[in-house]
């Protein structure tokens, strides 16, 4: 029914904001504990956003209307991506394919880049330039993995290999041998690093690099605009971890437990949260507490060299497993 879809369009993004900010809070708390600090309260990101929304919004004199518009576009584009993914373990609100989602994923980063350039600050311009390098880097391994998975679905005779529903059906990982599992783990490892890259987190945080370029892209942002970028970061975390859930862990727990109805819905939602939480801890918290920032010139080599080679190796191993079985 169309009115249910309209309600979902309005409600899901708000839930995603709350969940995203909660995850950021847990991330900060876990990171602090890993460094033997007490850390901020789990609800700290909520306080941060609240504080940013009651602050003055300063706009540089040399900036254009793009500066004020881009935080808005960044959040809207992430809201839309959430509707195309099985958020909270439920069916996607809107139907689309993976290629479409890949295109939409470019928008939030592009909005940040355009906002940074239009601010008129050299720091933000350097940050934007670095973010473009970052974007061009992580897209290659990401697209390689998704296209391989579509090809694998196609080889199983799936009619719509790029459809999100085909990915969530779990057909792809059926009948995987020991070699295949090893290959899939390699691909998962690459995807976790791609998440860190998409989120501009260590070791790929060259675009924000506080110590070098004073926050980079967001150097001139303040008040509500910075608050929107903060929310966009939380949403992006949800989007990317959900994408990995779709690709690697599309299974629900209700079928395994043999429950149905509302209990199944609640069990699958809790299971989804656990998956997203674990993915965030491995892709963000562990990385940011254990590795340092790469140089700009090392970014492309890391993505197009090491990560791409690792993903190709993973694909090759899975391919051998398919041939042997």
């Amino acid at each position: 029914m169309w009115w249910i879809t309209l309600i979902e369009i309005a409600v899901f993004p708000i839930v995603a904001i709350l969940l995203g900010l909660l995850l950021l809070g847990i991330d900060r708390k876990v990171a602090a504990r890993m460094q033997r600090r007490v850390g901020p309260p789990i609800l700290q990101p909520f306080y941060d956003v609240r504080k940013l929304f009651i602050k003055d919004t300063v706009i540089p004199k040399k900036s254009t209307w793009i500066f004020d518009f881009m935080p808005l576009l960044s959040v809207v584009s992430l809201f839309i991506i959430i509707l195309y993914l099985p958020f909270m373990g439920l069916s996607p609100v809107l139907h689309g394919d993976m290629v479409f989602i890949l295109y939409l994923l470019i928008l939030p980063s592009l909005a940040k880049v355009l906002g940074g350039i239009s601010s008129g600050s050299p720091y933000a311009a350097v940050g934007s330039q670095r973010e473009i390098t970052n974007m061009m880097g992580y897209e290659f391994p990401l697209v390689t993995i998704i296209f391989f998975m579509s090809w694998k679905l196609f080889s199983f005779g799936v009619a719509k290999p790029f459809s999100v529903a085909s990915f969530t059906s779990g057909v792809m990982w059926a009948g995987l041998g020991t070699l295949g599992i090893a290959g899939a783990l390699l691909l998962l490892f690459v995807m976790l690093l791609v998440i860190a890259g998409e989120l501009s987190r260590p070791p790929f945080d060259v675009s924000s690099a506080g110590e070098e370029i004073a926050g980079g892209i967001t150097a001139e942002y303040s008040g509500r605009n910075l608050g929107l970028f903060y929310i966009a970061d939380a949403l992006k975390l949800i989007v990317l971890t959900t994408l990995v859930v779709v690709l690697f862990f599309p299974f629900g727990i209700s079928g395994f437990l043999g429950i149905g109805g509302w209990f199944a819905l609640i069990a699958d939602s809790i299971f989804y949260f656990i998956k997203v939480l674990l993915l965030m801890i491995f892709s963000e918290t562990v990385l940011k507490t254990s590795v340092s920032r790469l140089k700009v010139t090392q970014l492309v080599n890391a993505y197009w060299g090491s990560l791409l080679m690792l993903s190709l190796l993973g694909i090759f191993i899975i391919f051998i497993d398919m041939v042997l079985s």
Binding site: G96, D97, F154, S163
Partner: peptide
């Protein structure tokens, strides 16, 4: 291989 609904995208 894929699909998307333009009307729903614009509405959303």
């Amino acid at each position: 291989a894929g699909f998307w609904h333009v009307e729903w995208f614009l509405t959303a």
